[in-house]
Amino acid sequence: MNAKVTAVSSNNDYSFTKPNRPGITLLAGLGVEGDVHAGVTVKHRSRVAQDPTQPNLRQVHLIHEELFTEVGKDGFAVRPGELGENITTNGIDLLALPTGTLLHIGDEAVVQVTGLRNPCLQIDAFQQGLLKQVVGRDEAGNIVRKAGIMSVVEVGGAVRPGDTITVKLPDEPHRPLEQV
């Protein structure tokens, strides 16, 4: 597997998209330095409204670049950072990873996968009809979420485009990803 980082993004203001950066710094237990979603407790507005003391299981959002190619076949143009992710990857099937997987990114950083991003209506505000592209149903009628995965920072460090990603699966039995 030749998994790598293709882009990194962050924003210190609440907005749907995040500008690309030359690099980001992950802070253990917090998330992306300077990003609005960094912190020990939840930062997503709807989750804060429910219970602001919930642990932040969404410190770092990763999306696979292959999704952009997939939705591009149906006429949607999406670039890294535009769906609000912090790290855009290539060469790794993020959605197939089990809960608890460790992703070693670059020379130092390690994130632990916590679950699937649950895309919201803001995606349709970004591009009308895109939500149906990133949330669908499989042949059995089960909901399939494709808008990336969420993680927490286990070990901090710098992350830049071109960095390699190494996967360390948790001990079995593996638990499939659920929305967080």
Rank of each mutant, 00 (worst) to 15 (best):
6 T>N: 02
168 K>A: 15
31 G>E: 05
92 I>L: 15
114 T>Q: 00
180 V>T: 11
67 L>N: 07
72 G>Y: 10
110 V>N: 00
1 M>V: 12
17 T>P: 00
61 H>V: 03
149 I>D: 06
13 D>E: 13
154 E>C: 01
79 R>A: 14
161 P>G: 07
81 G>Y: 03
163 D>R: 00
167 V>P: 01
50 Q>L: 15
2 N>W: 09
12 N>E: 11
153 V>Q: 05
163 D>V: 02
161 P>M: 01
39 G>Q: 12
155 V>D: 01
172 E>L: 15
123 I>K: 07
124 D>T: 08
108 E>V: 02
89 T>P: 00
160 R>M: 07
148 G>R: 07
73 K>A: 09
105 I>N: 06
168 K>Q: 15
168 K>L: 05
85 E>P: 06
83 L>F: 14
44 H>W: 11
84 G>M: 04
49 A>N: 15
180 V>I: 08
171 D>K: 13
71 V>P: 08
99 T>V: 06
34 G>I: 02
128 Q>A: 15
38 A>Y: 04
96 A>N: 13
3 A>C: 13
56 N>M: 03
95 L>H: 01
88 T>I: 03
120 C>R: 10
157 G>P: 00
141 G>C: 13
137 R>N: 07
93 D>Y: 02
148 G>M: 09
98 P>M: 04
74 D>S: 14
178 E>V: 11
86 N>L: 09
124 D>W: 10
62 L>P: 07
171 D>T: 13
48 V>E: 11
114 T>A: 05
123 I>R: 02
96 A>V: 05
98 P>C: 05
45 R>C: 00
85 E>D: 00
19 P>D: 11
134 V>M: 03
26 L>F: 15
127 Q>R: 15
87 I>F: 05
127 Q>E: 14
173 P>C: 09
157 G>S: 11
25 T>N: 14
86 N>A: 09
110 V>E: 03
151 S>P: 05
98 P>W: 09
162 G>M: 06
78 V>L: 11
31 G>A: 09
62 L>T: 03
93 D>A: 15
142 N>H: 14
73 K>E: 15
80 P>C: 04
74 D>Q: 15
51 D>Q: 00
40 V>H: 12
114 T>H: 01
177 L>E: 03
41 T>M: 05
80 P>D: 00
80 P>K: 06
11 N>I: 02
45 R>D: 12
97 L>D: 05
111 V>K: 06
108 E>F: 10
152 V>T: 14
85 E>S: 05
106 G>R: 00
19 P>R: 10
70 E>G: 02
172 E>A: 14
65 E>M: 04
167 V>M: 01
156 G>H: 07
107 D>R: 13
102 L>W: 10
95 L>A: 10
67 L>F: 02
71 V>T: 08
24 I>G: 07
131 L>V: 00
33 E>I: 01
67 L>V: 01
81 G>D: 00
104 H>M: 06
138 D>V: 06
64 H>T: 12
84 G>L: 00
88 T>W: 07
27 L>I: 15
163 D>F: 03
158 A>G: 03
97 L>G: 09
89 T>A: 08
156 G>N: 05
3 A>P: 13
94 L>Y: 08
121 L>F: 13
130 L>N: 08
92 I>W: 01
2 N>M: 13
113 V>G: 00
46 S>I: 08
94 L>M: 09
80 P>R: 08
152 V>G: 10
45 R>W: 11
19 P>G: 02
5 V>E: 04
65 E>I: 07
117 R>Y: 13
92 I>H: 00
111 V>M: 03
144 V>K: 06
